[in-house]
């Protein structure tokens, strides 16, 4: 038995530290985020890791041995930029998230480009923003709250493909 399970059982038994109302409300609201028939895109490793800040999604930037010297790798501080790649159903969704002033800017690319009628929906538990894609499959959304993020690609006549939820701290 793990210590944390024992401790959790003790607290439950004592009725101490109850679930805050906002946590319950968020849990109840989460069901509305279900996409029936949707295809979950799991994350895959990106060949060129996020240290190469100048690299665009999908660009092979190669090793960047000097990247630790800039002092900006603070593991989650302001202006953090990381590339995440998700694939499913023949689609690759690259997502780059920048944290500025506690808000998220989400930019990315769907490849191969899914065509002019496709839409991308960038979702957080509380807000979703829909964007058309450029001819090259790029999209960008700004001003999202920090926390859980998922990107959905909607294509006419196809089931939606969604990235699994990822957490981005402020």
């Amino acid at each position: 038995m793990r210590d944390e399970y024992l401790l959790a059982a003790l607290r439950l038994g004592a009725g101490s530290d109850p679930v805050p109302a906002r946590v319950s409300a968020a849990a109840r609201a989460a069901f509305a985020l279900h996409l029936p028939g949707g295809i979950a895109a799991p994350p895959v490793e990106v060949p060129a890791p996020s240290g190469a800040r100048s690299g665009a999604p999908g660009t092979d930037t190669g090793p960047d041995e000097g990247r630790d010297e800039g002092g900006d790798r603070d593991g989650g501080g302001p202006d953090e930029l990381r590339l995440r790649r998700f694939t499913a159903a023949g689609l690759t969704i690259d997502v780059e998230i920048t944290v500025t002033g506690g808000r998220l800017e989400v930019a990315g690319q769907v490849s191969p480009p899914p065509g002019p009628d496709a839409r991308v929906e960038v979702r957080t538990p509380h807000i979703a923003k829909v964007r058309a894609l450029t001819g090259g499959g790029h999209f960008a959304v700004a001003g999202l709250p920090a926390g859980w993020v998922s990107v959905v690609c909607h294509r006419p006549g196809e089931p939606p493909v969604f990235t699994r939820w990822a957490h981005v701290g402020a």
Partner: peptide
């Protein structure tokens, strides 16, 4: 903890 619990519900949804 709120983020962790919400994450688990989102994992169930997905």
């Amino acid at each position: 903890a709120a983020d962790a619990v919400q994450g688990a519900w989102l994992r169930l949804v997905e």
